[in-house]
Amino acid sequence: MIQQTIKDKQITYTINATATIPVAIYFNDIKISEENTPLNSSVDVNGYALKNGKYKIKIQIFPVFRRGDTTVSPEDIKSCQFSFGSFVRDRETGDILNPKTYSQLSLKAPDSPVPYFEQEWEVEIKDLPYELEGWSKGQNLSKMDQKELEKKVVSFHQNVREILNKGNGNTWADLTKKRAAETAVFYYSTPEQSASSVNENKTNVEKYCTNMMIPLEDYEMKLYAGGQLVTLEKKSHTMEFNNKSPLDIKGWGALIRKGQKTGAADYRILLYLPEGSNDFVIIRK
């Protein structure tokens, strides 16, 4: 299917964002950007749209924690700009081709400061050349006992943390094979590119994660996609982390690797529970 998709049909849908204050972007009821981070880039949404259809975009704007702000001003909100569009990426050169803007996501700012700001829009995706199963056949986790669900989710994260901390790249590659297979489809990778990406991720775990994963703590469980996806995220703000300031890891995935000298990276795992199964599957990040 990937090979049959000619280049000008390899469409990537995206949300373009310009914000100098912390924002979080949700697509299809899934958080697709880190919280508490200004954005001046585009956020691809193909991985979270399983097929053509109508979807909701939600954007939240937060106070600047590192400044000690407790509210967001109308002026700050008005300074943020968002739009929904698409492009084609040349996988050989990385160039962006045929960029399009379908709608400006105009913000309706309040008249006075607010603790945080939130707004939603509906958009339509029409030209994806594929359909993905993703989590569409997953159980509705919101209907489960939430304490028991959290125990199960924490246990899975603890197991994955141990695998990463041991630098076990082969086991990590096996755990993420379904995610990798679908990523190859929505990223329009060739079989060679997909295999190279899997090998690179495996090597990075072996090289950078060994004995570098922080303890699994200070997390909260989050449900996404109408209750079909679940993950753990850090729940507390930080002013600095691992010799990097400012660095706020609130909202990151709970599996975090410290950098060799400074900073950090998270290994966010979005999990679903297939129908008739008791075993989580990693489907996105």
Rank of each mutant, 00 (worst) to 15 (best):
N170D: 13
L132F: 08
E206T: 12
K202F: 00
Q158A: 09
N199P: 02
N170W: 07
F156Y: 12
Q193L: 12
V185L: 14
Q193K: 06
N159V: 13
T176L: 02
S194R: 12
D218R: 08
T210I: 04
D218I: 04
M213T: 08
P215S: 13
I163Q: 00
K202Y: 03
Q146F: 01
K137I: 09
W172L: 06
K177L: 02
G138W: 06
W135R: 09
V154N: 06
T183F: 13
P215R: 12
R179N: 12
N140A: 10
K137V: 06
Q158K: 15
A180H: 09
C209N: 11
V185R: 09
K137A: 09
Y188H: 09
A173E: 03
A195K: 14
N159F: 15
E148F: 03
I163E: 00
G134S: 12
I214G: 08
S189W: 15
E148K: 15
K151E: 13
V154S: 05
K147N: 09
S194Y: 07
N204P: 00
K166E: 14
T210Q: 09
M221G: 05
F156Q: 02
Y130D: 05
V153C: 03
K202C: 00
A173R: 11
G167S: 00
G138I: 12
N140K: 11
V205K: 07
E162S: 13
A184G: 14
P191N: 10
S155P: 00
F186I: 08
Y208N: 11
V205F: 01
R179I: 03
T190H: 09
Q139A: 08
E220C: 10
H157M: 02
E131P: 00
N204H: 13
E217S: 14
K178N: 11
Y188N: 06
N170T: 08
S197N: 11
W135L: 07
E206C: 02
T176E: 07
A184T: 08
D145K: 14
I214R: 05
N199K: 15
L149S: 04
K137W: 08
Q193Y: 01
E192Y: 10
Y219D: 01
S197I: 08
E200Y: 12
S136C: 04
E150Y: 02
S194F: 08
F156E: 04
P191M: 10
A180R: 04
L132K: 07
H157D: 05
V160S: 08
K151N: 14
K151I: 05
Y187T: 10
R161S: 09
G169K: 05
K152V: 02
W172T: 06
P215Y: 13
H157A: 13
K166H: 04
L164H: 01
L132N: 03
